[in-house]
Design a protein around this nucleic acid. Structure first.
Lengths: 204, 204
DNA sequence: TGCCAAACGGGGTGGTCCTCCACATATGGT
DNA sequence: ACCATATGTGGAGGACCACCCCGTTTGGCA
């Protein structure tokens, strides 16, 4: 397990003490600002709350995406740990479903997380993006479930995550978003038809 | 069927000729701007393209939402007409599924439409919001399908629309968003499990 | 034709994101 | 203990944005 926050420059040199302090302050401020205003929170405002100049924020986090990734990284790591726990405790199908529920609920209740997860695959250089972390955690669960014959073979983890993400995103700004997200996700996992009814094979 | 575009003031008086001309120009400009830049297109830019002052745009459309609704209204009406056609031509289940696909594809390929449909229910005074139109069109299809026993009884049209909306929204900015949206929607309608497998009844 | 309410739009206000660069300071070598 | 310098800072400013005030223009009607 690596350090929670970035503590060194790309060249490997450790961050100067003041830089590190500002980095952490910005992360704190960003956390609460995003909780209040979602992923579109004003960067200017975040810098102000952190008590640093806006240039400092932009130096540490060149893009909004970078900041979002940093803010949510530990929460995402928790989610990945949950995946491992579930795989150990439950049968493959239940584990996968339970984890997808957890993902959807996290997205629905942490405003802005969706954006962070969705656009993560943009920069293939960094493989520790939230996106990559979640994909690999989910892949393990899906592999188990598929071996157990619990999911259709044409379903990829990326599909399921998109689904969980979509549902979370769409319910992000509802009153009780988490519960609603969970409901919708279960609906799409179970399917819309009554149990026992034959699925219509719609021609592509 | 009412006029496609608003042509009268709240008081019922008809719009002055120049006002009406500007209204239409803004709508045109907004259409192409939104197609290029999505729902977040710059209002200033739209006014510029339309050759009117920004104040004029704000007078006609007090909020971004108002503008989106106006831009998409006719496309949404087409969608509602499609619902009626499908109900006439196909059996209830196929009609519902085909229409939901159409909705998802529309959302995925008309950038910004999702926002328009989702937040439509904010202002209960106007009942001709895109949101309301789509809900009532879908309700008819769902009622048929339910009578035919083709959908679970605990599913409401609003759930299905949220699902279609979610999927469309999440795929809005992908390369081939429409196809991807369709695929994901079908996945969630058919369910994730292999055909024939018993669905796990997860306790609420 | 002349009137005037209705509609217009330039320009101001206060906000955003982001960059440049003159200045400050933490750090490692002496 | 001191100092040179790489490293980090943040105010100022440019480009853009939404939104509004208010003096000016114009369509429609008598």
């Amino acid at each position: 397990m690596y350090e929670g926050s970035a503590t060194s420059t790309p060249a490997g040199r450790p961050l100067r003490a003041d830089a590190r302090r500002n980095y952490d302050r910005i992360l704190d401020a960003a956390g609460s600002a995003i909780a209040q205003h979602g992923a579109e929170a004003s960067l200017e405002d975040i810098a102000r709350r952190a008590g640093v100049g806006s240039a400092t924020l932009h130096r540490h986090f060149p893009s909004r995406q970078t900041l979002l990734e940093a803010v949510f990284r530990d929460r995402v790591q928790t989610l990945c740990a949950t995946a491992r726990d579930l795989a150990a405790d439950l049968d493959p199908e239940r584990a996968l479903v339970a984890w997808l529920r957890a993902v959807a609920v996290h997205i629905a209740s942490n405003r802005g997380l969706a954006a962070s997860l969705m656009h993560g695959a943009r920069d293939p250089a960094r493989d520790t993006t939230c996106h990559a972390l979640v994909v690999s955690a989910g892949d393990a669960l899906l592999a188990n479930a598929r071996r157990a014959g619990a999911v259709r073979p044409d379903v990829a983890i990326i599909d399921l995550l998109k689904l969980a993400n979509a549902v979370g995103l769409a319910t992000e700004q509802e009153a009780d978003g988490a519960a609603e997200a969970e409901r919708l996700l279960m609906l799409s996992i179970d399917g819309v038809r009554p149990r026992g009814a034959r699925a219509t094979r719609t021609t592509r």
